[in-house]
Simulated scan of single mutants.
Amino acid sequence: MDANVFALVPTHHYAGIKGNCLVVPRRHYENVWDIPDNLGNDFFRATRRLADAMRHAFGCEGISTRQHNGPAGNQDVWHYHLHVFPRYASDDLYAGPKAPYTNEERIEWAAALRAALS
């Protein structure tokens, strides 16, 4: 997305809601306590661009973000990243199961977002 952050479609989706992304710094930072303040604008800009792309590509009604830090915060990947989810009325995101994407699905969802970003 720029020189400091990039976005990707992860290996899993939740509650059947596809098209979710991760915004990730290009340099390694383990968690929110490690990431430098000056990357805040890069993360916000990337998140807003993804939100616009998701609305146009998927027709979603809203966007949710989430981010986990430390074992008690359910962090299970030890590199800072921000989840961005397309949202729909009554989609039950937080109660739905985690399920893998196929490689073909990841390519398809990423292509749709890439087209909406241009």
Rank of each mutant, 00 (worst) to 15 (best):
R26W: 04
P71S: 10
T11W: 07
D42Q: 07
A111E: 15
H13Q: 03
A112F: 00
I17Q: 04
T47R: 09
C21R: 02
Y14M: 10
D91I: 03
N69D: 14
L8K: 12
A15R: 08
L93P: 04
L113S: 05
R45C: 02
R45S: 09
G96W: 13
Y14K: 10
A46V: 00
R48T: 12
K18R: 15
Y101S: 11
R45F: 10
N74Y: 07
N20W: 00
A53F: 06
H81E: 07
V23H: 04
K98N: 07
P71G: 06
N74P: 00
W78Q: 06
P86E: 08
H28R: 08
E104K: 14
G73H: 05
P100W: 03
G16N: 13
L113F: 08
D2S: 15
K98E: 11
F44V: 15
T11R: 15
A99Y: 01
F6H: 11
A51T: 00
G70A: 09
E104N: 12
P25L: 09
N4A: 09
T47P: 02
A95W: 08
I17K: 02
H13F: 13
N38P: 04
E104M: 11
D34S: 05
F58M: 02
Y80D: 01
D2K: 09
G96V: 10
F58Y: 15
E104Y: 07
T102H: 08
F85W: 15
P36G: 08
F6G: 00
P86W: 10
V84Q: 01
N74A: 10
A112H: 09
N69H: 11
W78V: 02
T65C: 14
A72N: 09
I107N: 07
F6S: 05
N41M: 14
R55F: 00
V9G: 11
S90G: 14
L50S: 06
Y101V: 06
N4R: 12
R66V: 06
H83L: 01
L93K: 01
W78E: 09
N4T: 00
I63H: 03
V84I: 14
A110G: 02
Y101C: 10
R87K: 03
R87Q: 03
I107F: 04
A95M: 12
A99V: 08
D34W: 00
N103L: 12
P36C: 07
L50A: 09
A89L: 08
R55G: 11
A112R: 15
M54R: 07
R48C: 08
D34V: 02
R106W: 06
P71A: 12
G62D: 11
R45Q: 14
T47G: 10
F85A: 01
H83V: 00
D91M: 03
G40M: 06
V32E: 09
R48M: 13
K98S: 11
A7Q: 00
N74Q: 12
R106T: 01
K18T: 13
Q75T: 02
H12R: 12
I17H: 04
L93W: 01
N69I: 02
V5P: 01
A89P: 13
